[in-house]
Computed example of a mutant assay.
Amino acid sequence: MIEPSHYISKTVKDLKPSGIRKFFDLAASMEGVISLGVGEPDFVTPWSVREASILSLEQGFTSYTANAGLLELREEIAYYLQGKAKVSYNPKEQVLVTVGASQALDVALRAIVNPGDEVIVIEPSFVSYSSLISLAGGVPVSVQTSGEMEFKLQPAELEKAITEKTKAIILCSPSNPTGTVLEHEELVKIAEIIEKHDLLVISDEIYAELTYDHEYTSFVSIEGMAERTILVSGFSKGFAMTGWRLGYIAAHKDFLSEMLKIHQYSMMCAPTMAQYAAIEAMKNGREDVLYMKKKYKQRRNLVVSALNEMDLTCHVPGGAFYVFPSIKKTNLTSEEFAEQLLLEEKVAVVPGNVFGDSGEGYIRCSYASSLEQLQEALRRMQRFVENKI
């Protein structure tokens, strides 16, 4: 008999399982649970987008596409970015269609990271960043942010974290898990540090469609940053297409050609029928996105107001569909709060510590649920908090 553990990669062994999954699994085993933990839209993919995929199947478009994706889709992505980010990308050389934004992040990191290279992650952060850096052979370096500053990256803290081994920084605006949006002036200050230290940026812009109070600023639109930035995005959040698994990368052609090699060997191409669906989303999905955005903003305002009223201090997030309230007044840890809330009131939230040490004392709640569900969840949370404070 062999001992499998002797053969497993040490890097993989050292990876921690997703802390989010623990609470999803527990919630799934209980009846009557309202989940505010899931990071995906509650809307169904718009009908015209689904219909385009169905039509592609009826027409027999079931073969591989080009490794980089259908040229028509890459052209639509480039056209979209020209309007949204104010940067021109050559669709033949600078756009790569991937299997979700998650694969885009993986490909981007593997293309630029050498063993021992440091990559800066802003905490609280999406749970995959540090693990993907480690899998690429790099070293994740955390820069913490605070609720008092609305979880915005402070340039001085970024400067402190940079060493001679630093290769890149991952930015996510709007942020998962905090919903924080970095405005133009704030991005300019970060860009000055990036240029000073000759760094690269992976800009995760998967929530770019979902900003509510100010016009969105892409990091690539900051002067001098387009050539230093690997822009990662996709269709999951803004277009309600999580299950379609479709993302993309836009970058300098020399970066993209190397990323394409990794994509060729690991994935071949993104699903063909999903690519046809995405073409329709790009061409005719704007009204659906605006409708969903309007509903999310209404829900955000409801949830933030209710949380503050129950003394769970919460800043107003500028984007995405998450709130990140403080639960410190309950004297419970993030995990204790999340577990007790689930067991006592059947409301599932994500403990903030799974997003890094600076997330301790907070929870992540998604408002990608119906108003009725949100209102009931908030009533249950109010009752729970009254018993804890």
Rank of each mutant, 00 (worst) to 15 (best):
residue 2 I to D: 09
residue 9 S to H: 09
residue 13 K to L: 11
residue 14 D to C: 11
residue 36 L to A: 00
residue 43 F to V: 00
residue 45 T to L: 00
residue 48 S to R: 06
residue 55 L to D: 04
residue 56 S to I: 04
residue 57 L to G: 04
residue 63 S to V: 10
residue 77 I to T: 02
residue 79 Y to G: 06
residue 91 P to N: 09
residue 95 V to M: 03
residue 97 V to W: 01
residue 99 V to P: 00
residue 102 S to M: 10
residue 105 L to Y: 05
residue 109 L to E: 04
residue 116 G to H: 07
residue 117 D to N: 13
residue 121 V to H: 05
residue 132 L to H: 09
residue 143 V to L: 11
residue 147 G to W: 09
residue 153 L to D: 13
residue 154 Q to T: 15
residue 155 P to H: 14
residue 158 L to S: 10
residue 160 K to C: 04
residue 171 L to E: 00
residue 171 L to V: 06
residue 185 E to N: 09
residue 188 V to F: 04
residue 190 I to R: 08
residue 190 I to W: 02
residue 195 E to I: 13
residue 197 H to V: 06
residue 217 T to P: 10
residue 224 G to S: 14
residue 226 A to K: 14
residue 239 F to I: 14
residue 243 G to C: 03
residue 243 G to L: 13
residue 245 R to N: 14
residue 246 L to K: 06
residue 266 S to Y: 07
residue 267 M to H: 07
residue 267 M to P: 01
residue 273 M to E: 09
residue 276 Y to W: 02
residue 280 E to V: 02
residue 286 R to F: 09
residue 289 V to L: 10
residue 296 Y to N: 12
residue 299 R to P: 14
residue 304 V to L: 12
residue 311 D to C: 02
residue 311 D to M: 11
residue 315 H to M: 11
residue 316 V to S: 11
residue 319 G to D: 02
residue 323 V to G: 04
residue 328 K to E: 12
residue 329 K to C: 01
residue 333 T to S: 12
residue 336 E to M: 09
residue 370 S to L: 12
residue 388 K to L: 08
